[in-house]
Every structure is written in C-alpha cells, then in structure tokens.
Design a binder for these strands. Structure first.
Length: 922
RNA sequence: GCGCGCUUAGCUCAGCGGUAGAGCAUCACCUUGACAUGGUGGGGGUCAGUGGUUCGAUCCCACUAGCGCGCACCA
C-alpha cells in the first residue's frame, strides 16, 4: 500500500466494477427498502446541495442493503419546464437566435439536445459521487412512457371532476408569458406610493377619494367600495361616481372587506386585475374589465390615448393626466409587497386567462389525514406544522403553463371551441363520436412541471401497470428532501399517491437543511460562490475555477468581485480531496439545522481522516500478512477486549444515528472510534505486544486477530458513508480477516449486538489510560519529550493498582515512556517529585533537574484550585437536605463518592505542595 | 400581522434535567519503524437576557432581545 491515500484512481475503478457487476440492482430478497431520488433538473450540473442529498440517500441505501433489505434507490431526472426552457432560450439568445424564430418543434428538439448534455453530466457526477442507484431503472420525467402516465392521471382526474378549465384570475408572468401557480410567486416588500385619487360624484358635487398603489388599473375599475358602517360614506352607498379619464360611471358598493381606517376608507375595485377585487366583484356582480394584453400593455378596452402603453408607461401618463385635471389629492410613500415570478423575477400581473386547475380540496383532505394518523411522519417533526398550515388553506392549483417544454395537456378543441379531454385524439374522437372530417386541435399548453413530479413515487415504479416493482417498493420507505419543496412536491406527492395508489407514497419524510457557503450565504451562480462537487473530488486549478465561476454571468459587472473573492479563498485552486472525504464532510453537516455551512476546512478534516484510516490499515496489514490470525487458542489481552467493547459502543451509536436520520452522529461515531480509540490507543497498545520479545505467540496472535478483525468490522460500518476507501481496504483485508463475499457492498452491516460490551475490560483499561495520561501530562506541561524514558515511583498503590501494574506494565512503559515503576514502601520517603493522581495512588516523577519545582508548584496550585471549586459546589449540593430526599439514590451515591474522591485529591495535592515547597526551600 | 427556527470556546457546530464537548484556529514540546494529511500536552465558555417549574436548569416552561426563514388579500 502507498504511504498516502490517493483516491483518484481507486474511485473510478471501483465504481465501474460495482456498476458492471450489477451490485446496485435490488437483491430481490428480504424486506423492501426504497427511495426515489428527488429528480434533479436538467438545467445544468449538480450542485453541492445535490451532493449532500445524494450522500444521505446513498448512505441510507447502502446501510439497508447491507442490513439485508431488498433495496432500490430509484434514479431519474426532471424536465423542469420553465427552468430548462429558460436555460435553452438564453443559449439561443446568446447565439443571436430566438425561440420564436425557431418555432415550437425545432425549439423543443433543441431542448432535448440540451437535456442529453445536462443529463449526461448529472449521471457522470452521480457516478463519481458513488451513488448506488439502479441505473437500469433511470427515468426522465418527459420520457414518452412517463407522458402516458401523466396523461392517464390527467384524464382520470378530469373524469372525477377534479380537473377543470376556466377563465380565472391567475398570476401572469408578462415576461415568460405564462401563468404560474401561487407557489411560484415570491412576495417582495418594496417602497412604493399610495396615490389618493379623486373620483367625482355623479349627480352631486364633490369627490370620493380612493387610495391606490396601482393607479394604472383604474381604467379597469368596476366600482368603488366603502365599509357598510362607515358613517362618512353611508349616504353614498348605491350612488355613483364618474371614473376619470374613461367615460364610465361606477357604482358605490358596501363591503365589509374595506378597512375604514386605511387610506381614505374608499377602495377602487378592479375585479380583473386584483385577487381581492375579483372576490368582491363576484359578491356584487361587478363586470370583469380586463385592460391588459399578455405582455402587460393596455388593450383596447381603455380609451385610445392609453392603448398599447406598457403598464408602467401607462401609470406615468395616467398620473400626469389626473394631475392635470386636479384629481390627485395627495401622494404618500407606502411599503407594499410586489409579486414576482420565482424564475423570471418579473413583476407579475393578475390576469384573466383560460387555464386548467386542479380542484385540490378533495385531494388535500386525505393527505392531511394521512399525516394526522401517522401514516407519514416528518423528521424532524417540526415540519408537520408547516405542512398542515399550508394544506388547510390550500387553493386550487393552476396546472397549465403557456410554455413549449413540458407535457402537452391532453385536451382537444373543435372549431367551435368545444373541449374534449382524452388519452389521445383518437380516443377523443371515439368517445365523443367525432369523425375525421371535423378538425381537432390539441391544447397548446403544457402542464406545470410539478404535476409530473407529484406522480414520481408511483410513475417510476410502473404505474398504471400493476408491476412487481410497484407492489414491492410502494410505498417507498423514506423521502429525502429539503424544506423548500414541502409544498411544491411533498404535499402534492402525498395527494396524488393517496388518490391513485390508495396509500401514502412514503412512510417517512426526512427534511434536511440547505447547504450554504462558509459565510452562510446561499450558493448561487450570480453570487459566484458555487462549487461543483466534482471539483472537490478531483481538484481544479485556480484558472479553471475562475473561468467556471465567471462564464455566462447574468450580471457581468459582478465578474471582478467574484474573481477577487475566488482568488482570496482558493489561491491555489482546490486540491483533490476524493469522494469519501466530501461525503463524510457532507454527512457531518446533516444536523437538524436549517442552514448548513459548507466549509473546505471540513473536507480537509475528512481527507485527513481517510489518510489516517489508510495508514492504520497499512499498519494492520503489515502486522497481519504472513501470520496465523485464527482466533482459536489465541490469547486476548486487555486491549483486545477493550477495543472490541469500544467497537460495540460505536456500532450502537451508528444504529441510533441511522434510526434518527442523524448522519452527523454516524460520521462522528466513526471518526471518534477510528481516530481516538483505534488509532490513538489500540494500535499503540498493540505495538507493546507485537514488538515485544516477551509476548507469547498466542498473545501476538490474539492481537493480530483483533487488529484485522476490528479493522474489517470498522470498514463495513464505514461503508455507507465512505464507500470507496472502505471497499479498497476491505479488498486487501478480506482474505486475512476471513471475510466472505466479493464486495463490501454485499456484506452484512455489523450489528451492535454481535459485538458484546466488555464491562470488565473498560474500567481496567480506563486505569491504564489514566496512568498513561497522568505521566504524559507531566511530560507535556514540563516540556519533556514523550520518548524520554522517565523514572516513576508509586505511592499508596493498593492491591488493585499493583495487580493492574503487574499485568499491564508493558503498556505503561511503552505508551507513557517510562521505566518500570517502583512502588514505594509505606514509610518510604520519596525524593522531590512531580505527581499525577490515579485514584488514591500517586504516580511520582522524580524531578532530578528535569523539572523545575516552581513549575510543579504552579501545576499543583492549578489542579488544587480546580478541585476546590468542584468540592465547594458539591458540598453545597450535598448539604441541601432536599437533594438527598428528592434526588435519585444513584445520583446521590455518585456525588457522595465524587465528594470523597475530591477530598482525597485535595489532601494529596496539598500534601504534595507542602513537600515540594519544603524540598525546594531546603 | 400569524407561525417556525436559531443564539454553547476566536470560528463552525454537537450535546444534555445531575462535574460543559468536537473539529478548526491558537500556544508549547516531539523528524518515536502506520500516518507531519502526523504525535503529545496546554490555554480558552457567567451555554443571549429575565422570570418560573425543580432538590438541581445550558437543557423544561413563559417572556424579552438579536438574527434568519416561512405564510398572509389590507387597497
């Protein structure tokens, strides 16, 4: 084995072998465990958030596979309607072309080409990240087979009266020229104005003043509303005002919606351009006067002077004209929330258009119940409340999009505009008796991307066919996703799953946090702080990184700043850390926090960990190869028994971590055991046996066996998080360790119960460790090199101490770097010494000019101070009669014992202080 | 406006009703035959604030402050 772990060559080789060997396919044996991947969008490449999520899913999959589950991790990608269409359109624009020039068919063809590119990059990334998905089942949401399923769902929902078409007020994006669902609207608070406008009264003198933030919509006003109890306006209800600039009269209506305290207490009502006004209009039978075109210019319903004006130009002109007529009472600054499209960032316009909707309440009710009844559980549970809140006030879902990239809506129209929903044009003709002479035209619109996503857990498994996969893997075991798409996706999958499968789509929803950069900033192209996971795995030069981060910026003026920040953070580019280091780092981020800060320092930490493990394995193999390693007749030392016991502890922690989806705890348990127990202690302890001429062959065999056996189990426990290094080392140890199988992937995950805790070895080893630590501390604090052998005397050594000393002397000598200690007789006076305490025994290191008495006195004083503080706290606690009465007896006993120990310790430290002082002075 | 989350060492974060933890950073010592991507030791925290429950609160409850995030029709 090489001296340093170099992942690059190993990882590619191993993954290719796994895949070619079919190790990712479900075993077909055992209980089912299944996860469907949240399909990444084919808009580009995977980002750090994907790497994080994939690490979690892969770890869960590998863990369950090893635990004997029939494990399926279903892969796939999403066509991501708007997002992908925008990416390709931007590419076209950069090349001086436009979508309109190309036409629908050619454009869609172009997007398919892009899909191949993006999908290929994504697949490559996932392979490089070690994802054990069943590639045989790879699916794209817009595959023809998937379209059939989407159509099937649409038609069935329509048959059940749960999909309808109608002219409704929707969120309209005038830039993308499509309708959006409520979820795709981001409300941003902006500084605007509140204009107080005068609407002259009809058949009376004077004005009614209305307050509005959107004066340009006044040309679509259908009424003015006041509160029914508002004394100021009560007498005007039922009368009329004249709409300025347009020659129309508007009724004055009363509605409790109006807040008399806001503005003037009079509201202009524009039912075709405001959601509230729409509702109010319905109540009062007001006409819908739509005054805007699809690109948000004024249409022909307005007076000629304003026709064709863009909405913002129209605002200026209308305000100028009103002002000229003296109809602006006043203008006050006003904060308002402006709706913008989440993709385009364009200001949206409520617009009356023909759209398709899902009648959602009947679907929502069972989905709410499923969570209430615990058939689906959110982890962490706190997200349940967020889910309920949204589900209880859910509104009909606008599913039609005026885009080209997506699932065409399975509806056909005849020349008279009659609409036929069917699985195909042929079916429409057959069912409705329309012969070939009648022309039918399919609906131009496509479906919201999330419509097909909602079907993902069953569409990927073969629905509507009753496939074996569907039977076996539905409901899936757990959905792993971010909180940002609980509404978009989780809730909708629940509704559709219950509707079409009559069961929940997943039993658990594990909601993880979102990956941010080292400063807590969201990672985005425009901020220039994104890192391609593969650039951490394989490394990247500064130059290449700079180019990657600044190419194709939407805001080119950001370039200089991005370059500066990048040079500062990565002066040498990024080193190649390997997949396992990245995965371990990501696993450790999987705490319950919402914001997870990604930091290169943490990757480095786990790169070092991999190297540590690699070298520990080198040590083990170096000492195992060519030796008899069989446990039969071997002698197992304290250290051997201890490390196995600690291994059991680690395995318990790992089990608990997986059970709670706390991969950070899994990673920590592995890290701490591997580094701080196996390497720091056990490997060092083993040297005391293996490199000793006095140790018996049986003892050496016991140690060699334990080394290889512990390593082999550790590798299996590590495999879900660090698949590559564990496989690579395992291949080298498996023969020596007597392990079965070709790949670590298909071995059994070690269970905590198979490795017993050794209740005797642990405290005994504790004594050895405390002895070593005591001496090391003296050495450390006195700047004595560790390898400098010291003379050591023991005072007050009891029978237990002497017993341990005799048995474990070889450990102490080696790890503490001492000569064999000599126990002092009861009356024997020690020379001037530094002291470490171990129970009631004193470990004495003669100073002999090595140690300054003054330094030792300082050290003693420090210990004494700490012990005295602890003691006084404990005395207060135990002095409280209520404590003894109410606290559990074991706690009281423990504190009682600790009190005694502290008193002994203080006595010893005081006595030693006096001794050193006296000897120093003499 | 309603709701949720966070506040623990210089930094990033675990933790927990019963003596405060890790990694990084920092300081000192160490080229020891697995590893300098290393070893050993040290320093560093009134666990945001106030009040309550409790024998005992960093942990549970209430309130306050700061930060962050959802949801929301006030024109």
């Amino acid at each position: 084995m090489d001296k340093a772990y170099s992942p690059a060559e190993i990882e590619a080789r191993i993954y290719a072998w796994w895949e070619a060997s079919g190790f990712f396919a479900p075993s077909g044996r055992g209980p089912a465990f299944s996860i469907v991947i949240p399909p990444p969008n084919v808009t580009g490449t995977l980002h750090m958030g994907h790497a994080f999520q994939d690490t979690i899913m892969d770890a869960l999959s590998r863990f369950h596979r090893m635990r004997g589950f029939d494990t399926l991790w279903q892969p796939g990608t999403d066509h991501a309607g708007i997002a992908t269409q925008m990416v390709v359109e931007r590419q076209l624009n950069a090349a001086g072309q436009s979508r309109a020039e190309l036409g629908r068919e050619a454009f869609v063809e172009r997007v398919w080409q892009w899909k191949e590119t993006s999908g290929g990059m994504i697949a490559k990334q996932m392979r490089r990240l070690g994802a054990s998905v069943d590639w045989q089942r790879d699916v794209f949401t817009l595959d023809p087979a998937m379209s059939l399923k989407v159509t099937e769902v649409f038609v069935r929902l329509h048959e059940d009266g749960l999909i309808y078409r109608g002219k409704r007020l929707v969120n309209w994006d005038p830039v993308l020229k499509t309708a959006l669902s409520d979820l795709e609207v981001v409300a941003e608070e902006e500084q605007g104005s509140l204009w107080h406008l005068r609407y002259p009264l009809v058949e009376a003198s004077g004005y009614l003043v209305v307050a509005t933030t959107r004066p340009e919509t006044m040309l679509g006003d259908a009424a003015v509303a006041v509160h029914p109890d508002d004394e100021r306006y009560r007498h005007l209800i039922g009368r009329k005002v004249r709409l300025p600039l347009a020659d129309r009269e508007l009724p004055i209506v009363a509605d409790a919606y109006v807040d008399p305290a806001f503005g003037s207490g009079c509201v202009k009502i524009t039912p075709a351009h405001d959601f509230n006004d729409y509702e109010l209009g319905q109540r009062h039978n007001l006409p819908l006067i739509s005054i805007m075109t699809l690109d948000a210019a004024l249409n022909d319903s307005v007076p000629p002077a304003y026709r064709g004006l863009d909405r913002f130009a129209a605002r200026e002109k209308i305000l100028a004209d009103l002002d000229a007529r003296g109809l602006i009472e006043r203008i006050e600054p006003h904060k308002l929330t402006v709706p913008r499209g989440d993709r385009s960032n364009a200001i949206l316009e409520p617009l009356l258009t023909d759209q398709w909707f899902v009648d959602i309440k009947p679907l929502a009710a069972p989905a709410i119940r499923a969570v209430q009844e615990g058939r689906v559980r959110f982890v962490p549970e706190t997200w349940t409340g967020v889910y309920y809140d949204w589900m209880h006030k859910i509104r009909d879902w606008c599913i039609s999009r005026q885009l080209w990239w997506g699932h065409r809506i399975p509806a056909w129209y005849d020349a008279d505009g009659r609409c036929y929903v069917a699985r195909s044009e042929a079916e429409a003709r057959r069912v409705h008796g329309i012969d070939a002479s009648v022309a039918l035209r399919q609906d131009e619109d496509v479906l919201d991307t999330w419509f097909s996503s909602a079907l993902w857990p069953f569409s990927t498994l073969g629905w509507p066919e009753k496939t074996a996969a569907l039977r076996t893997y539905y409901p899936t075991s757990v959905l792993v996703t971010g909180f940002d798409i609980i509404f978009f996706w989780v809730a909708r999958m629940l509704m559709m799953g219950l509707k079409f499968m009559d069961d929940v789509p997943f039993r658990k929803v594990y909601i993880h946090g979102l990956i941010r950069d080292q400063d807590g900033q969201k990672m985005s192209k425009s901020k220039g702080n994104v890192i391609d996971p593969l650039d951490i795995v394989d490394g990247i030069s500064l130059q290449a990184l700079l180019e990657k981060r600044t190419a194709g910026l939407m805001q080119p003026q950001m370039k200089a700043g991005i370059e500066r920040a990048t040079r500062k953070q990565f002066p040498q580019g990024i080193a190649a850390y390997g997949t396992d280091a990245l995965r371990l780092c990501l696993a450790r981020l999987a705490t319950q926090s919402r914001d997870l800060r990604f930091d290169m320092a943490k990757v480095e930490e786990y790169r070092n960990f991999c190297n540590k493990l690699w070298n520990a394995a080198r040590f083990v193999l170096m000492n195992a190869e060519g030796h008899d390693l069989s446990p039969a007749g071997a002698e197992f030392s304290l250290a051997d028994r201890w490390i196995r016991s600690r291994l059991a502890g680690m395995l318990s922690r790992i089990d608990a971590g997986f059970a709670e989806y706390r991969l950070d705890m899994v990673a920590n348990a592995l890290y701490e055991f591997t580094w701080h127990e196996f390497c720091d202690w056990y490997v060092e302890l083993s040297k005391a046996v293996l490199q000793s001429d006095e140790a018996s062959a049986q003892a050496k065999r016991g140690t060699r066996h334990t080394l290889i056996n512990t390593l082999e189990i550790l590798l299996r426990a590590l495999h879900p998080l660090a698949p590559f290094i564990s496989e690579e080392i395992w291949q080298r140890v498996r023969v020596n360790a007597g392990a079965q199988g070709d790949t670590i992937m298909r071995t059994d995950f070690p269970s905590a119960s198979s490795v017993p805790v050794d209740a005797q070895a642990e405290p005994e080893m504790r004594w050895v460790m405390d002895f070593v630590l005591g001496v090391r501390q003296i050495k450390g604090e006195m700047d004595i090199p560790l390898n400098r052998k010291l003379e050591v005397l023991l005072q007050n050594a009891g029978p237990r101490d002497l017993g341990y000393l005799g048995r474990h002397l070889h450990y102490l000598v080696r790890l503490a770097g001492i000569e064999p200690p000599r126990a002092l007789a009861a009356a024997e006076v020690a020379p001037i010494c530094a002291v470490a305490l171990l129970g009631s025994m004193e470990i004495l290191v003669p100073m002999k000019g090595l140690i300054e008495p003054a330094a030792e006195l300082e050290r003693l004083a420090k210990r004494l101070r700490k012990a005295e503080i602890d003691l006084s706290k404990l005395e207060t606690k135990l002095g409280n009669s209520q404590f003894a009465k109410n606290a559990p007896p074991d706690i009281v006993a423990k504190d009682q014992q600790r009190l005694e120990e502290l008193r002994t310790e203080i006595g010893q430290l005081s006595a030693q202080t006096a001794r050193v002082r006296k000897l120093k002075d003499s």
